[in-house]
Amino acid sequence: DLSALRVEEVQNVINAMQKILECPICLELIKEPVSTKCDHIFCKFCMLKLLNQKKGPSQCPLCKNDITKRSLQESTRFSQLVEELLKIICAFQLDTGLEYANSYNFAKKENNSPEHLKDEVSIIQSMGYRNRAKRLLQSEPENPSLQETSLSVQLSNLGTVRTLRTKQRIQPQRTSVYIELGSDSSEDTVNKATYCSVGDQELLQITPQGTRDEISLDSAKKAACEFSETDVTNTEHHQPSNNDLNTTEKRAAERHPEKYQGSSVSNLHVEPCGTNTHASSLQHENSSLLLTKDRMNVEKAEF
């Protein structure tokens, strides 16, 4: 173990290094160091905050020279020094078990990766560091076993998940096959086929009936047209017969005018059967003409 005197000496050296690497504005270890034209180094955030307070150039807090945003430059070497100082402080805390008085939040800088452990060898070769390295080497064999167990647990979990997924996939297939086998029997399929065939026959029977009705309507229309044509021909046949009657009536009127007047009046009210309204109107006109002729003949006879 380190003596108290040596611990104090190391602590004083760390404090001196820390004062050199402090920012003059925030009085902390410089984060993202930036250098000016006057070779003074500050935190990048502190300098941008200072420049944004005034429009135009501002003055350096140490030498009062003008500073602009374009004049600022990043210093990589200074950032490396800060990183190495942080590593020294971490090693000091691990070796002594004491917390550094002016320690900052170094938890963000710590890294437990194997590459980081290899890099620590180049920091300080001390008894405390050696003991700590031995402890780490002793704890390393235990870690692979834990990793193997965790991997086995994960693989077993994956296997159970896969088996569950396969079961879920197989179950719908089985149910679907069961439904297909038990849903419709052979008799049901035959009945469905016969039902479809009967429906098709009914459709075939319905369509000819409609065509037959249309044919019957067409035949009825044709018969009505033929009947009207026969009526017209009958009226045409009746007209010459009426003319013959008129000639006979004229002759009778010349011989017996008194008797014919009474008979002509009675004939006005008689309509021949089986004739249309057109034929009756023609008869009325003929009878009126005959009456006028008879009157003329009677007057001539009187004179």
Rank of each mutant, 00 (worst) to 15 (best):
D1N: 05
D1A: 03
L2V: 13
L2H: 09
A4H: 06
R6T: 05
E8F: 06
E9A: 09
E9L: 03
V10L: 01
N15L: 14
N15V: 09
A16D: 10
A16W: 04
A16M: 00
K19G: 01
K19P: 00
L21E: 00
L21I: 04
E22P: 00
E22G: 00
C23S: 01
P24I: 00
I25C: 00
C26P: 01
L27T: 02
L27V: 02
L27M: 04
E28S: 03
E28T: 02
L29T: 06
V34D: 00
V34R: 01
V34S: 00
V34G: 01
S35Q: 07
T36N: 00
D39P: 00
D39H: 08
H40K: 00
H40R: 00
I41Q: 03
I41S: 01
I41G: 03
I41N: 11
C43S: 01
C43M: 00
C43E: 01
K44Q: 04
K44T: 01
C46L: 00
M47Y: 00
M47K: 04
M47L: 13
L48M: 05
K49P: 01
L50R: 00
L50M: 03
L51K: 04
L51I: 08
L51T: 02
N52S: 10
N52T: 01
N52E: 13
N52Q: 11
K54A: 06
K54S: 09
K54G: 02
K54M: 00
K55E: 09
K55V: 08
G56E: 11
P57T: 01
C63I: 00
C63T: 02
K64Y: 02
K64L: 00
N65I: 08
D66N: 12
T68L: 08
K69N: 13
L72I: 02
Q73H: 08
S75R: 05
T76V: 10
T76A: 08
T76F: 15
R77C: 01
R77Y: 08
F78P: 06
S79G: 15
E83V: 05
E84A: 03
E84V: 05
L86F: 04
K87V: 11
I89N: 10
I89W: 11
F92N: 00
F92V: 01
Q93D: 01
L94K: 08
D95S: 00
T96K: 00
A101S: 10
Y104W: 13
F106I: 07
E110N: 13
N111S: 05
N111T: 07
P114H: 04
K118W: 05
E120S: 13
E120P: 11
V121S: 06
S122Y: 09
I123K: 09
I123G: 12
I124L: 06
Q125G: 07
S126I: 03
S126V: 08
M127I: 12
R132Y: 07
R132Q: 11
R132V: 05
R132T: 05
R132I: 12
A133Y: 13
K134I: 06
L136V: 12
L136H: 15
L137I: 12
L137S: 13
S139M: 10
E140V: 08
E140F: 05
P141K: 14
P141A: 04
P141R: 11
P141H: 11
E142Y: 10
N143C: 05
N143S: 11
N143G: 10
P144I: 15
S145M: 04
S145W: 13
Q147S: 10
Q147K: 15
T149W: 03
L151T: 13
L151P: 14
L151N: 15
S152A: 13
S152L: 08
S152K: 10
V153E: 15
Q154I: 00
L155R: 10
S156I: 04
L158C: 03
R162Q: 02
R162H: 03
R162M: 05
T163H: 06
L164A: 03
T166V: 00
K167N: 11
I179F: 15
G182I: 07
D184N: 06
S186A: 11
E187V: 07
E187R: 13
D188M: 11
D188H: 04
V198S: 08
G199W: 13
G199A: 06
G199D: 07
D200I: 04
D200R: 05
Q201V: 10
Q201P: 10
L203R: 13
L203G: 14
L203A: 04
L204Y: 09
L204C: 03
L204A: 13
L204T: 05
I206G: 08
G210L: 11
R212Q: 08
I215M: 05
S216M: 12
S216K: 07
L217G: 12
L217E: 06
L217K: 14
S219V: 14
S219L: 02
A220M: 14
A220D: 11
K221T: 13
A223H: 06
A223V: 09
A224R: 05
C225Y: 15
E226A: 05
F227Q: 05
F227D: 14
V232R: 11
T233H: 15
T233N: 14
T248K: 15
T248G: 11
K250P: 14
K250V: 12
R251I: 10
A253K: 15
E254F: 08
R255S: 06
R255K: 11
R255T: 03
R255Q: 08
H256A: 13
P257G: 11
Y260H: 11
G262A: 09
G262T: 08
S264I: 02
V265P: 08
N267T: 04
N267A: 12
L268E: 07
H269R: 01
P272G: 14
P272I: 05
C273H: 14
N276I: 08
H278L: 11
A279K: 12
S280T: 14
S280N: 12
L282R: 03
L282G: 02
Q283K: 09
Q283I: 15
H284P: 02
E285D: 10
S288R: 09
L290W: 04
L291F: 10
T292A: 08
K293Q: 05
R295L: 15
R295P: 03
M296C: 08
M296Y: 05
N297K: 05
V298L: 06
K300I: 10
A301S: 14
